[in-house]
Design a protein around this nucleic acid. Structure first.
Lengths: 128, 128
DNA sequence: ATAACTGCAAATTATTTGCATGAGC
DNA sequence: GCTCATGCAAATAATTTGCAGTTAT
């Protein structure tokens, strides 16, 4: 980790493309998007920027979805759901779990600082 | 997936070694354990058996811990916490989240069938 | 000027698969 | 005996790293 980070052309385009997306793209999906504007960008640069942006809190990294990491431009607390069939990840309109916030802090011999909650199920498109 | 599964020597030892473990081992950790009793077993066999056992509900697969899948012999609902520092995964003595159960079923346009909740923080060993 | 960032290619890590042989039921 | 399971080796997939050249501050 570094002390100073710089705003590069690549980072700016990554942030711009991610903004507003609600599909929780993987690194490779972000790479494909960004490539239409910066054809020479490399996948490693996308990985490095997504990682750095997660670290400074600009975006949210979603580690709960099986083998592939996903990214979310919305950092405010909310929950996700992953369809067992199509594997898409959606935002969930469940806001009533503030009880979770009450778990933060000291909990037995652990100090809890955050959590990941992911539901699984079937989405409207796959539910026939 | 197959219709009939068989109880092999390898599967039996994997189940026996896993039973009672509270460290949520990775496939490779299970492999190392089992190897002391079955030196010729291969890592692929361990992966195949852990996957099969998760599918038939005999063990629980934990997909929420970053890049490595972990396994838990306890299938009853409970929550986990992963230390940010040592990356260990612990059981959590938080049982008051039954509200989560109330979220199952229809939720907007989704049908929720399960969830994964993992806390992160710092464990007693790393908290100095 | 200097430290951070890039693209590229190669390396790593975790997991899966093809296949010939072996073993439960 | 018929499948399913195994061991091995090779393949895949996701992510990370080394490095020499480039760029933001």
């Amino acid at each position: 980790m570094q002390i100073h980070t710089r705003m590069t052309k690549q980072k700016r385009v990554i942030v711009e493309e991610l903004a507003g997306m609600r599909t929780h793209p993987t690194a490779n999906e972000v790479y494909q998007l960004v490539r239409s504007r910066l054809p020479k960008i490399s996948l490693a640069t996308v990985y490095r920027n997504l990682e750095q942006l997660s670290e400074d809190g600009s975006i949210r990294r979603i580690d709960i979805c099986g083998s592939q990491r996903r990214f979310d431009p919305i950092v405010e607390p909310h929950h996700h759901m992953r369809c067992n069939i199509c594997k898409s990840v959606y935002d969930l309109p469940v806001q009533k779990l503030e009880e979770l916030e009450g778990c933060m802090g000291k909990c037995g011999e652990y100090t809890l600082t955050g959590y990941n909650l992911a539901f699984c199920g079937v989405c409207h498109r796959c539910d026939k």
